[in-house]
Amino acid sequence: MLTKRIIPCLDIKDGRTVKGVNFVNIRDAGDPVELGARYAQEGADELVFLDISATNEQRKTFASLVRDIARHINIPFTVGGGISSVADVAPLLEAGADKVSINSAAVRNPGLIDELSRAFGAQCIVLAIDARKVDNAWVVHTHGGKNATDKKLFTWAKEGQERGAGEILFTSMDHDGTKAGFANDALSKLHALLQIPVIASGGAGGAEHFMDTFILGQADAALAASIFHFGEVKLPELKGYLRQRGISIR
């Protein structure tokens, strides 16, 4: 039986994990390869590495980091951050990444989704959407949530699927950081609307939130960052908790 996926997310700046990590037994908590390998060992189903470096010069070093990640990690991983062309994607996939996520550049130029999907296949194109509720409508935001756009979550997700995205990574800005659970209403609507998998993001605070998003939100996968980095939720215990409650988990 196909399982629900648990996906730790690592933000990378200048080749280092940011947002802080307080694991014991890691020699260097800032090393994304070491942290990713640890998550893989603990049972993560996939990993996401987001490059939040500000300049193109810093971004160039990202491909060599991706190669290092692929060399050491034996589970699938997605990379993203600042991707805006076929030329940006090719070196990342050649370095060993399995998927790339695109966000702001796709909003600016939706044809990018078609281009990337044709060039590399739908299975490796993740459309990341950041949205928050404004006057009862889920409004899509770009540039890390700074800029509101005229796009709405559900129509944009559907358009993304039609243009060839293989997965939707939906982050609710309203839930992100609250630790009060995922945006399960919006997620279950996405599930009903789409034929491609949906990854829930934003709001994870405890194991019960993962259960809720898999049942109420009908999410195919759930992503979280700080709760894993700070050890508030540990992967083996989280997976045991979900398994005990009848969720299909590896």
Partner: peptide
């Protein structure tokens, strides 16, 4: 959903070339 994407379990057939320890294990 299609593609079939993620971890799913294996059931080995008789005389499979795969290590018997793989029975019911998950692959990507």
């Amino acid at each position: 959903k299609v593609p079939h994407m993620g971890w799913n379990n294996l059931t080995l057939t008789a005389n499979s070339w795969l290590d018997p320890a793989l029975e019911n294990k998950f692959a990507y």
